[in-house]
Structure formats: C-alpha cells, structure tokens
Design a binder for these strands. Structure first.
Lengths: 164, 164
DNA sequence: GCAATTTTCGCGCAGCCT
DNA sequence: AGGCTGCGCGAAAATTGC
C-alpha cells in the first residue's frame, strides 16, 4: 500500500536494487487465503450479514481488487449474494463454523443423555442382582420405590437444565 | 486463450480496431464465479474428494492461474486442503448439504427424546394426582412399581432404536 | 438515449518458494 | 526448474448525469 517495493505494472519507480529491509511485507501477510479468513471474520461480526465492500477493503487494509477475488468465488459457492452496488449479503444463514458449533452442542446434549441413561441402567442392574430385593421386592423402604424416585429426580434435574 | 483480442500485458498485437464479431467471448463466460461452480461440480463427482489441479485446468478449459484463484479462497474457508503438489483434497468430509442432513438427524433424535420424556412426565403427574395412590402408595400391584417397569421398558426400547 | 463516471474483474507478468 | 501466487493494468459492465 504505502511502499513501492515491487516492480509490477507501471508504479513510479521499479528500483532494480531490491529495497528489502525493515518493514518488508512477507507474501503470506497478504495471501488470498488469509484475506478470505479475515473476510469471513468480518461477516461473522456483522449482525445482518450485509457488508459494504469499501469498508471491507478499508478494514482489511487490502486493495479492492483482492476483495473481488474473494467475493467472486464465495458467490460461486452461493455463500454470498450481490445485494447492490458495493454491497454483498451473506446467504446460507450461518457460517460453517457456526453450524459446526451447533453440531457440537447437540452432540454434547446427546452425551449427557447417554450418561443419564447409562447411570440409570446401572442402578437397575444392581437392583436386579440384589438377592434380598429379588426375594422381597416391596419389603421395607423398597429399593424399587427408591429407584423410581431417584430416577425421576435426576430426570427432573436434567429437564431443568435442558430448559434453561 | 486462442485469441489476442484484448490489449493487456504484452500479448503480440493490440490491434486497435476492435475485432468484435462472431466468436466474441463475453466476460462472464470465463468469470471466476462460474469457474468456481464448475470446480465444485468436479469435486462432487470425484469420489474420494481429491483433485489434480492440472486435470481440473484441462477439464474446465481454464488457465491454471485461475484455478489457483479458486482453490486459494476455498482453502481460506477450510473447504479444501492442499494435499500435495498439484493436488487438493476436499475437507469437511461432506458437502454442505450433507452437513445439514446430519443436523436434521440430530434434531429429530432430540425431538424423540423430548417426546419420551414428555410422556413419562405425564405419567408421573397422573400418578401424583391419583388419590388412592397417594393414600396407599404401595398397595396391590402398586402403580409405582408398574410405573418403574413401564418407564424402563420405554427407555430400553428407545435404546434399542438408538443403537440401531 | 448517449457520454461521463464508477464499479467489476479478466488477465498474465514477474518474483516467491521450494 | 517449476509450481505457486501477489499484483495492478486497463477494458467490460453498470450507474449516473444531461
């Protein structure tokens, strides 16, 4: 941007002797891949999913031409849509990253349920193996009654968590 | 490709008088967006999700440079990964469509569990409201015992389905 | 409508990086 | 030596002005 280090096109002076020094800008700092990631980041922030390309170019400190490189292929994948002049809109609702998060959440939910079921199953197995209980299933403070109560207690606790 | 209609860079002859005629190639015929779509198409076909960039360039009849434009941003979005020289590999295992299917499946699973819990909760509520049962919780073939059995029966049936 | 402006963006050179 | 890729020129498309 501010430097004229490179020799492409017809910028002022090519300067054959490479001015490789302090503020050299490594190539990967401006790679399309990185730019794309940062673009996606901006997209994630913007609540409504609409971006002004000029602002993007500004914020990412990248030439507009590069932004077009990104938007063009994102549009090809239908992750984005041209909304109007200088404006694109996010399609597909959420970013892949977000979708993945949702998946993670559901999987976690599944795990918890599995745990609960597992623990209850264990309890039943123990009761079935208990000789005394087998012979006098309802004697004293029956473990069957105790079990039913205990079981529902955990279910209700779980439900509380479930429904925030 | 074969024509020298344009005047950019230093291709042979600029030819001031525009040779606009029969085989004019509109800009959009070679747009990055279209190229991206066709690239995705190729990806979808290739079973293992690995593509040789040279073949891609050949099949899409596009200069290699353009293919890089596509792969670079696709890589930024982590839809793709450089596998080796001239080779990229599809990531995320499945196309976006597939991921959505998975989400649907999990949500359906969640719904079923919700239903099961709901029905069980209903059962408890009924039992709690049953005067007779309240007074003589363990009388006869106690509905508490019946409930515990019934509850576990559904849980086990559910588990059977769960684990295919 | 058509010319002036502005926005998009095809394109391939030249320099990096193995 | 050769794959890879930043880069920006200038022409095509879209907008605006008259």
């Amino acid at each position: 941007m501010a430097s004229g280090t490179h020799s492409g096109g017809k910028t002022p002076a090519p300067s054959p002797i490479a001015r490789k020094s302090l503020f050299e800008k490594s190539r990967c700092d401006t790679s399309l891949g990185i730019l794309t990631q940062r673009f996606a980041e901006l997209l994630k922030c913007s609540a409504n999913g609409v971006l002004d390309l000029n602002e993007v170019s500004q914020q990412l400190n990248a030439p507009k031409r590069r932004v077009y490189d990104v938007t063009n292929v994102l549009e090809g994948i239908q992750l984005i849509k041209k909304k109007s002049k200088n404006c694109i809109e996010w399609l597909g609702g959420k970013l892949k990253v977000q979708v993945c998060q949702d998946l993670q959440d559901l999987i976690e939910e599944e795990r918890k349920l599995d745990e609960l079921i597992q623990s209850c199953t264990q309890q039943v197995r123990h009761m079935c193996e208990d000789r005394h209980c087998q012979r006098y299933p309802l004697s004293g403070n029956s473990s069957w009654l105790h079990f039913a109560l205990c079981c529902w207690k955990s279910v209700f606790y779980f439900l509380l968590e479930w429904w925030e």
